[in-house]
Amino acid sequence: MNIHDIAKLAGVSSTTVSRFLNNGYVSQSKREQIQKVIEKTGYAPLLGAQTMRTKRKKLIGVIIPKISSESVSRTVDGISEAIAEQEYQILLGNTSNDPEKELQYLSIFQTNTDGILFMATILTEKHRQMLRGMKIPVVLIGQRLEGFDCAYYDDFGAAGELASLLIRSGCRRPGFIGVTLEDRAAGLARQNGFLEAMREASVDVPNERMCYGPFTMESGRRSMEKLLAVCPDLDGVFCATDSIAVGAMQTLRAAGRKIPQHVAVVGVGDSQISGIIEPALTTVHYHYKTSGAKAAGMLLDRLEHNPHSPQQVSLGFEVVMRGSCRC
């Protein structure tokens, strides 16, 4: 008997049974249903026996950049559902966007887990060296690296689509608020996608209208202050994340600029707040939960079948049109 049998008898999903066994949140009614079935059948998870038979620990290490991030939580949700079906458990490593902590968790998880799902931000040469020497499989989420399994987003294409929206809305003096270019996805690819669309439309974006900072609302507020100082007649702004966009919008309102009549604003991420603020933010929706499930599936496939060639999957995006852009 396994968790699938328990789930069927209790009338719940296998994921719910897995959460119950791992002391995760399960509603009281479902908890009672599962407990009754376990008591009736005498079921007990034999993790140690599984490990002896398969030489597996049945543990997956998940390295994340920021536990409070909405996109991270959606991604981990997809991971959890996918691996629970195979009776794996998660060890979570929160790095707080610290590259050194990422390296530490890679080292720790190499000896304590069967495989690693790595939501990478900045891949330094140290990262590349360590990844090449790993003795267990690693799947990257959100970044693309040759020779490794990856589930990543089309950041270049998404930024280009948003920049084209600004152009079609009449913007001819746009600004850009991005993040560190060491982040090749959210930083470099989104910058390049924006600039390429502007070049194709013959819209000039001088360096003084290109700002960079952390992934925060405060960064958006301060960067927008700088943009308005160097370009008082700014008529549009691309923000690399929704959080940055919300901060930028706060500064615009404080300066008496109407959105989108005076300045159009676009962001990336389709976070909950993007649909709540006024006007609601035009943004790009990434399928974070799907990316987590896809990456987990790739890792499980690597563990079970060890395919010869790395799998690299680019996930799509959807532009979400709202009131912050004039289109």
Score class of each variant (00 low, 15 high):
L315N: 10
S73M: 11
P65W: 08
A197I: 01
L140P: 04
D98F: 04
N192D: 10
M249E: 04
G220R: 08
Q312H: 08
A255D: 06
R128Q: 15
A254G: 08
A248E: 06
G193V: 03
S223P: 14
I244D: 02
P65Q: 07
E70R: 12
T54C: 12
N94A: 06
A163Q: 01
C325Y: 09
D233T: 13
Q129V: 14
S18E: 03
A229K: 11
G267C: 08
S73C: 12
A295G: 05
R221N: 13
M119R: 09
F148L: 09
A44F: 07
M52W: 10
E278G: 04
R222D: 15
Q311W: 02
V138L: 02
M134G: 04
A197R: 01
V37E: 07
Q33M: 14
G275H: 05
T113A: 12
L123A: 00
F156T: 08
L91A: 02
N94H: 00
Q311F: 03
L165G: 07
I273H: 07
Y212R: 12
G187S: 01
Q261C: 02
K226I: 05
K55L: 12
S13C: 13
M217R: 15
V313E: 13
L117V: 03
D242M: 02
N207S: 11
V265E: 10
Q89F: 14
V284E: 02
L9W: 06
G247R: 10
A293C: 04
R19Y: 11
A296P: 01
G256N: 07
S14F: 06
H308D: 14
S291V: 14
D235A: 05
L131R: 07
I122S: 00
D233V: 11
Q312W: 05
K135I: 01
G292H: 06
Q129R: 12
H287T: 13
P310E: 10
E70Y: 13
E87V: 10
E225M: 15
T251F: 09
L166N: 00
L47T: 14
G142F: 06
A185N: 07
R222F: 15
L166K: 00
V205D: 03
R74K: 15
M1P: 03
E146G: 10
I90V: 11
G142R: 01
R221D: 11
A120E: 00
V284G: 02
A264S: 15
E125T: 05
A84Y: 14
Q143Y: 04
L162S: 04
V320F: 11
N23F: 08
Q28F: 10
I116H: 04
T290G: 02
G256V: 01
K66S: 01
L166H: 03
A44G: 04
R190T: 02
L227R: 03
L46T: 12
G316C: 06
I3Y: 11
R56P: 12
P65T: 08
T51I: 08
P310I: 07
L228E: 00
I108K: 09
E146I: 04
Y286R: 15
T216A: 13
K101E: 05
I122G: 00
K294N: 03
D183C: 03
V265H: 08
S169H: 14
E304I: 06
N97E: 12
T113I: 05
T113G: 05
A82T: 05
N112F: 09
K57F: 05
E32K: 13
S14L: 09
T124F: 01
T121G: 00
H4Q: 15
K58H: 12
G247K: 09
P214T: 09
S96G: 10
L195N: 04
N97G: 02
M298T: 14
G42F: 03
